[in-house]
């Protein structure tokens, strides 16, 4: 059973960070959809509800997503539907159901670096940065590589570059976690290929991205992605199958991007 001994609702992010670092076994609460599954004991739970982080804003250069914005907010936000071929709404809209997506938050999902994440795969294919209270602002790809620190993810920024993107996933049942997912994007001649749910966390397939950027054909580039990345087996699929599907999904995503004008 979940145990929360103490609960705080800080009025400022400084205060939240202070509690996080000062108390033993403290944790920042996200949407809490996965919280009840474990039998965790949290000495001090930190709720960010009072920090006004539940928003999606757009300015001239960026779309800014607050950590407490939900997946449903992403799914329904007009700017996110409009930009990047709506890749972000597309990446989240098959996850469980609306009542789940109204609970799950962007900040917690990105911060947790879940291997099965659909959103991270799509975000990585865009020019995404994250802002951490202590760690500061950095590209999402960099954040994904860093080891987990006690910190608070406050915002996600996506640069409005005009990238064209496509998201693909393969699932057994349509409400299941993905067997594999992939996102491919293109800005002028700069391509990005991202593969997630391998089942480990999403990464950029650099060789494949380079090949596409250098104008190599899609099938070869998709093959390169399957070759350069590692895959493992779990309940949803074997490593061998994932590797084969990587090629298919990357090819499909790249083809869709190519077809967009």
């Amino acid at each position: 059973m979940l145990k929360i001994l103490d609960l705080v609702q800080p009025e400022s992010i400084d205060e939240a960070y202070k509690v996080l670092t000062e108390s033993h076994k403290s944790a920042v609460l996200g949407g809490c959809a996965f919280l009840r599954m474990g039998s965790k004991t949290i000495n001090t739970a930190i709720d960010l509800s009072k920090l006004d982080l539940n928003y999606i804003r757009e300015d001239n250069d960026y779309i800014e997503i607050g950590a407490m914005a939900t997946f449903r907010d992403i799914e329904t936000h007009p700017a996110l539907k409009e930009h990047f071929n709506g890749v972000l709404p597309k990446s989240v809209n098959n996850i469980i159901g609306v009542q789940f997506r109204n609970v799950v938050t962007v900040g917690a999902s990105v911060f947790s670096k879940y291997g099965f994440s659909d959103l991270i795969t799509a975000l990585l294919a865009l020019d995404t940065e994250v802002e951490l209270y202590k760690g500061g602002r950095m590209p999402l790809a960099q954040f994904m590589e860093e080891s987990l620190q006690k910190d608070i993810l406050t915002k996600v920024f996506i640069k409005k570059t005009g990238r064209i993107a496509s998201y693909q996933s393969l699932r057994n049942s349509s409400s299941d976690f993905p067997i594999l997912n992939a996102a491919v994007s293109k800005l002028d001649n700069n391509w990005l290929v991202v593969v997630g749910a391998r089942p480990t966390r999403a990464v950029i397939a650099t060789n494949a991205s380079e090949k596409l950027s250098n104008g190599e054909d899609i099938s070869n580039s998709a093959k390169a992605a399957a070759e350069e990345l590692s895959f493992a087996g779990n309940l949803r699929g074997s490593a061998e199958y994932r590797k084969a599907m990587c090629e298919v999904l990357v090819k499909r995503a790249a083809t869709e991007v190519m077809q967009c004008r």
């Binding site: 599954m37 057994n172 049942s173 349509s174 409400s175 299941d176 976690f177 309940l235």
Partner: peptide, 16 residues
């Protein structure tokens, strides 16, 4: 038993 929740044991949803 590895399939001990509706996350791992998938009954059809209405899209399936």
């Amino acid at each position: 038993l590895q399939t001990n929740s509706f996350m791992t044991y998938k009954i059809p949803c209405r899209k399936d």
